Simulated assay, not measured.
Amino acid sequence: MDNRSLGLLLVGAGTVFLILALTLHIAGLLYGVILGSSIVLNVSGAGILMKFIADKKLANLQRPYKVRSLFYEFYVGIYSMGMFGGILLWK
């Protein structure tokens, strides 16, 4: 299991515990345990997701060149042709 899946799993479990704490009418120690576990799971899941994003950015920085996707090249081509066509029609 990679960091992205683990982080999403922990955040999802924390969200479930938060919804349980808000919807169930419980008081006392059980409420504190459910709410505390929700906070711990959400914070740890968010931390793991941030580490995953940082590792991904670091891996992209270590590449010798940036690979552009075909969609990006198509978008830039269409955009530049549209602007050039607009300039020609304006004059």
Rank of each mutant, 00 (worst) to 15 (best):
M1W: 15
D2W: 10
N3T: 13
S5D: 11
G7S: 01
V11C: 01
A13C: 10
G14L: 08
G14F: 06
T15L: 13
T15V: 10
V16S: 14
V16P: 01
V16D: 05
F17I: 12
L20E: 09
L20A: 09
L24I: 11
I26M: 08
I26Y: 04
I26K: 08
A27D: 04
G28A: 06
L29H: 12
G32C: 02
G36I: 01
S37M: 15
L41P: 01
L41S: 02
V43P: 00
S44C: 05
S44N: 05
S44T: 09
G45E: 00
G45S: 00
A46F: 14
I48Y: 05
L49C: 00
L49T: 00
M50A: 10
K51L: 15
F52H: 15
F52N: 03
A54R: 15
K56Q: 09
L58N: 06
L58H: 11
R63E: 12
Y65V: 06
K66G: 08
K66E: 06
V67L: 10
R68N: 13
L70V: 08
F71Q: 05
Y72C: 13
E73R: 15
Y75E: 10
Y75S: 11
G77Y: 03
I78H: 09
M81P: 09
M81N: 14
M83I: 12
F84Q: 11
G85F: 02
G86N: 02
L89C: 08
K91C: 03
K91Q: 07
